[in-house]
Design a protein around this nucleic acid. Structure first.
Length: 308
RNA sequence: GGCUCCAUGGCCGAGAAGUUAGGCACGGGUCUGCAAAACCCUCUACAGCGGUGCGAGUCCGCUUGGAGCCU
């Protein structure tokens, strides 16, 4: 079975740095599991590492889409499976590194995603309906839907459920069971440290030109999309982008923008932790541990020996 | 020294006698094709003391703290 090392954790905790060090030691390559870093021209804001920082380690799943294009889990799953498949004979060790829990699980837990693809015209139509209308429509099409209380109130999930129900065909499952043997390494630290790291990182981003980057993103999007879609797309790149945009439009001052940016990143980190908490096969490490590299190195060595 | 106004939970903010406003933040959670998204749950406060009411953030008095005006 193909071993695959996963490094996950909340934002700004040092996943990339650790991944590079370990990849160097194990003849590895890095597959990014980050839903934003797939976009070109969104570098500073998404925390993408520079080619200098990559230190010759091959990276995949970065810059694979233009800003105006869409992407989703199903595509991610397909793309990553393909990458790993092609590696197999090369004897290299893949490191799946990132903070997008859904994307990571889709690979490691072998998600069986329905074959029903996104129907954008249907989505546009459904997005005009309010929550109750969506709920009624779903009940009509699929009386015994399995949405939980939280999702039942979530327009995004309701629309997807309707999309599946609407397809009428029996949702075939694309079950190409992969045969990966995963090892999960999780990086964590106290909430205070996370907050501190995020503050440092946000300040660094602002210094490196995060604001100019958002201006550029707006320009690129506006060139390709309608004003409406441009705004929608901009929102998709995360709160940080929206907050900087508000600053650019003069709606908030610099310090207010900075504070909100930090706060939104922190909230994101909390949500990531909530997600990872339920994955119970993670080997957790303290991010500040001086022996982090040695310890994880040992864990991987044992894991690989065990595997063969 | 005199007069006037204000004082609500971490923050913003409604409420002028009779359920718990609400928003944001914090904390917890959901998650199988937008996931840095979207959604769910949770936090019961009225500056202090006394009084009048069956009943007081809501009326009266005093105290404390803040804002303004006057000599």
């Amino acid at each position: 079975m193909q071993p695959i090392i996963t490094i996950l954790g909340p934002t700004a905790i040092g996943k990339s740095r650790l991944a590079i060090e370990l990849a160097k030691r194990f003849d590895g390559i890095i597959i990014s599991a980050d839903s934003r870093q797939i976009y070109k021209n969104f570098d500073i804001g998404s925390g993408k590492i520079t080619s200098y920082e990559m230190q010759e380690i091959q990276h995949y799943m970065l810059d694979i889409r233009e800003l105006w294009q869409d992407y989703n889990v199903a595509e991610f799953q397909k793309d990553v499976r393909q990458i790993i498949k092609e590696l197999k004979d090369k004897k290299t060790l893949p490191f799946l590194v990132g903070g997008t829990g859904l994307y990571i699980e889709s690979i490691l837990y072998n998600y069986n995603l329905p074959t029903i693809a996104v129907n954008s015209s249907l989505r546009t139509e459904l997005s005009k309906l309010n929550k109750v209308e969506l709920q009624n429509k779903l009940l009509e099409l699929s009386p015994e839907h399995n949405l939980n209380h939280s999702d039942w109130n979530n327009p995004v999930r309701l629309i997807r459920a309707i999309e599946i129900a609407q397809a009428k065909t029996i949702p075939l499952i694309s079950n190409q069971a992969n045969s990966y043997k995963p090892l999960l390494i999780g990086l964590t630290t106290s909430l205070e440290n996370i907050k501190k790291n995020i503050t440092t990182r946000v300040d660094a981003r602002l210094e490196q030109g995060a604001i100019a980057e958002v201006e550029n993103i707006k320009k690129i999007l506006a060139n390709k999309l309608s004003p409406d879609l441009t705004f929608q797309k901009l929102a998709q790149f995360g709160l940080g982008t929206m907050i900087i945009n508000q600053y650019l439009e003069g709606k908030i001052n610099y310090e207010g923008m900075r504070q909100q940016y930090i706060q939104s990143e922190y909230k994101y980190a909390r949500r990531q932790l909530t997600w990872f908490r339920r994955m119970n096969d993670i080997n957790w490490f303290e991010a500040d541990d001086k022996n982090l590299i040695a310890k994880t190195n040992l864990l991987i060595a044992d894991f690989l020996r065990l595997k063969s």
